[in-house]
Amino acid sequence: MLIGVLALQGAFIEHEKAFRSLGVGTIQVRLPGQLDKLDGLVIPGGESTTMGKLMNEFGLFEPIREKVLSGMPVFGTCAGMIMMAKDIAGSSQPRLGLMDISVERNASGRQVDSFEADIDIPAVGSQPFRAVFIRAPYIIDVGSGVDVLAKFGEKIVFARQGRFLAAAFHPELTDDLRVHRYFLEKCM
């Protein structure tokens, strides 16, 4: 099995480390040709505007959508979650738009409001998950086919729609591999 991590900008190395700890091979994806052999794709945290511009410039949107049509699972964290959303509040920035979710960018505020907290994710086990939120987006609405997997307070922070998974927090910044394992087990 081979997981590609979009490596245009952001914390892609941390995702590679997480999947390798689970015994799965990874490659960094910067150009369309690197998508060919992938069994799954991760869109990491970083700046969604930067990623969107580089995806446009280097022609990644259509090849990724084609792979998705032929069944490729995709997991987006933070900026990656924004790329997964069909609707981004108040923004027309480029996106993959794979999931029926509405998201709000920087919804938790600026960096001084970034935080970590224990959240409950029943789908990955009964132990709380230490979630790191960095200038984090939230999911403000979901369509009927979307499963809400975790909330922080009233805010939706983790959701799945079939082969697609989106997290507002950064499972790649902690040593807890349960979210990455969930993607491999449930979305692949």
């Binding site: 190395i13 970034s114 970590e116």
Partner: peptide
């Protein structure tokens, strides 16, 4: 409980800037 300004959170933003300008 949300903890702000932790080392993980401070270092985390820099991690998100990697590969960027």
């Amino acid at each position: 409980m949300a903890e702000k300004g932790t080392w993980t959170v401070k270092k985390g933003l820099a991690e998100m800037l990697k590969g960027g300008v």
